[in-house]
Design a protein around this nucleic acid. Structure first.
Lengths: 200, 200
DNA sequence: CTATATTGTGAATTATGAATCACAATTCTT
DNA sequence: AAGAATTGTGATTCATAATTCACAATATAG
């Protein structure tokens, strides 16, 4: 066995967090072990502890990864188009792609949040979702101000419905082992959703 | 310590499955242990093995519980009203109530489905979801035939969107530890959804 | 009422995986 | 190049939870 190249902690931390994210996506939280992470990174299990104090810390890093990716999407569409409705559509596509690429996300969300240890993580996740929903809500409000979206619809409700265009598709995609066409669903559902929120 | 009353296996099996369901809802799959189940049932851990060959079998029983409850809802609304749209609304309420009462459901769905052991459970869950979606699809088709629902909407798409009215609400309800008003969201989202699918 | 089957109990066993540690190899500083 | 700091390795320890087992109590059949 060749020895793993000595690599700076900041690089290793990223590698470990990414490996953990992928492992969670593939096998759920139960499939996440220090040994599996180490193998994927190409080091020995005990080496992981050179870069993180323990498994809990690795999970925190995974949550941070997810937070950044979620909000990056919301950020990105802001510069792509000024039109609120079009912005929503682009975000929808991005969001869907992200969930299919990162199946770890729904896993982590629904994972165990019971012990006191997990309380902090739950809170971080909640903040992430709230921030994301705030972005979507803002786009919808903007569409209402511009007269494109019906003013009698609570923006927050529409924002949660927006998430609802994706979440079940991601779930079915996973349950069917990729058999369910998540992208196809989103494309078909979009005009229906639109029909419910735009001015007729 | 008083000794647990001797109880028939069929009763114990139900108690054990219910206990497991509740434990998963409270603490996720990670929070599920034979010891915890036993404590909740009021017996000693090793006694669980009198009624199930092992933990895997208990999980199978939990899945069966969920399947039955899902389909019971779809079945129930069929006799409550002949109107397709109203039937959908009733199902929505039932579904939402069920998810809030049984937070184990989303947990189990997004739980680990990687090992070969889990392959069978994934398949069972997929069947459950498909059967449920079939029911919803049928109601929508019926609404289209009756002229209440737009005919240019793919019924399956609408059915998945229907699930999407609930799933994110259940997620937010959980993330916020009950702070998010899932029932309120569903009530607000329903007319918007309706606006997208009914004939204008 | 006695024999048998069923269920419950506590102790012991086992498997798994997280975490620690002493030591080796590598890189960096000077 | 010498010494210090960093990173990697293998062996070991520790904790947890599933599972097994011998035995006790209780219910059921005859």
């Amino acid at each position: 066995m060749t020895r793993a190249a000595k690599t700076n902690t900041d690089i290793r931390q990223e590698q470990i967090a990414s490996a953990a994210l992928e492992l969670i996506g593939a096998g759920g939280l139960s499939g996440l072990s220090i040994a599996a992470i180490a193998e994927r990174v190409g080091i020995v299990p005990s080496a992981v502890y050179r870069h993180y104090p323990g498994k809990e810390a690795v999970l925190d890093a995974v949550l941070e990864l997810l937070r950044v990716r979620m909000l990056a999407n919301a950020e990105a569409v802001r510069t792509e188009t000024p039109d609120a409705v079009e912005r929503l559509r682009l975000l929808l596509i991005r969001h869907m792609t992200m969930l299919v690429d990162n199946p770890a996300f729904p896993h982590v969300i629904f994972a165990h949040f019971s012990h006191d240890d997990d309380e902090n993580r739950r809170s971080v996740l909640q903040d992430t979702m709230r921030a994301y929903l705030d972005e979507v809500t803002r786009i919808i409000e903007q569409g209402q101000a511009a007269g494109a979206i019906r003013g009698d619809i609570p923006p927050r409700t529409a924002a949660v419905m927006f998430i609802g265009l994706i979440l079940p598709a991601a779930m079915l995609h996973r349950l069917s082992r990729g058999g369910f066409d998540a992208a196809g669903h989103v494309n078909a559902a979009w005009p229906v959703f639109l029909g419910g929120i735009v001015k007729s």
